[in-house]
Write a protein that binds this DNA or RNA. Structure first.
Lengths: 215, 215
DNA sequence: CGGAAGATTGAGCGTAGTCAAACCGAGTGG
DNA sequence: CCACTCGGTTTGACTACGCTCAATCTTCCG
């Protein structure tokens, strides 16, 4: 029912269209999941950090809808879906975890629709950074200082803006003394103030990790 | 376990923050679900037609994340969640339907992220119209001719553009002899051609309705 | 009939996109 | 150890798509 996976940066965990057999929990490293249009335009749908769950989008009709790619050396724990289903029929707690997880996936993507449909570029980037900050804190790391694991293009795609715009907006934040940016390292100079000025963008909290451990 | 609800245009089925108790299937009429930012900007997250299911976003943590509003006189069938859970533990088919439904909700919103993040205004509107066309067909109505139940503002919000842009793009389609627009009535003049020219935007298919009937 | 909400259209503007060049850092191989 | 390459990042100049604001028109109800 459980198995380990090891990926190098750039390798895929699964691809759009593959048969959905397992969901994964991230043990270390990080992933992005993305969709692609016929003409090559792609949209990053999410970034996945340790403790989080990937692959639920395959549940709709047994085929993955996105492609999941490692951003760095990454280890996951694959959980086979069919026995998980059976287990959730016997154990109410498993059923509940599974439903909460899926519910969170729904509300996370809905919240992201709000971001993509209604926010300006600086608001999007602020929401993104605050989200990463919170997720870092949730895993026991500093919320005011962390490294981005993804490229500017990935960030831009995720936020519906261009990589160049990501650069310019970061420069803007820097100029306003809101944060320090050194390549992929981010440090907030006054996180509460930053959060306050973009509080409208601060609205969503991460899901609790799947109960139970990797075998 | 089941109960009927009747709404007039503009009335809400549930509001963000309310306790999640039930999911609804739409029996007649139509609804929109939306999220709102602190400063009043809103994002329409979806439109819901007869046969479709509303309210799954409450599953994340027991509170609805969106507000669901009737676009016209509407009837729904409410299904109480707790007994539904119990039922899904006994009947594999119910469990399966529920999971597929949630999976579809995930992939629908992911697909919409792609639209909001990567497509131009005409592409978005084309995707929207083609989606409505397909859903009309799925319910046994003409895919080439139908009435919009929502305002231009709602469409714009849903697509991440302004109502004025919706008008202008519709006028553009009209000028290209792709379709006729009379207020809220849409008629495709050559649906296959239209679908072909915007095939990149055509990528998602609707969920099967929830098995079983309203008591 | 009158009022309100929605739809349409136009003019002008601004945010973010495009294109292109320079820069940087990490690997690789001579 | 340095030169070279290659992806990724940064910056600038210019453009354009879609937004804003405002006026007008239409439709729908009370």
């Amino acid at each position: 029912m459980f198995s380990r996976h090891r990926l190098l940066a750039g390798e895929t965990l699964y691809r759009k269209g593959e048969a959905f057999q397992v969901v994964h929990t991230v043990r270390s490293g990080s992933l992005k999941s993305s969709m692609t249009l016929a003409d090559g335009r792609t949209q990053v749908c999410g970034f996945h950090l340790p403790g989080e769950v990937v692959g639920l989008d395959g549940m709709a009709d047994g085929l993955y809808q996105t492609t999941s790619t490692a951003l760095e050396d990454t280890q996951t724990c694959a959980v086979v879906y069919v026995p998980l289903l059976a287990l959730s029929q016997r154990l109410r707690s498993v059923q509940q975890s599974l439903h909460r997880l899926m519910g969170h996936e729904v509300s996370r993507t809905q919240w992201h629709m709000l971001l993509l449909g209604s926010m300006t570029a600086p608001e999007r980037l602020a929401a993104f950074l605050l989200d990463l900050s919170r997720r870092a804190a949730a895993r026991g790391y500093s919320p005011i200082e962390f490294n981005l694991r993804m490229t500017r293009s990935d960030i831009g795609s995720y936020l519906g803006i261009r990589a160049e715009t990501v650069c310019r907006v970061l420069r803007g934040f820097k100029a306003m003394n809101l944060l320090e940016v050194d390549a992929r390292h981010i440090r907030f100079l006054d996180l509460p103030a930053f959060a306050r000025s973009y509080s409208a963008t601060l609205n969503w909290r991460p899901a609790a990790p799947l109960a139970g451990r990797c075998a």
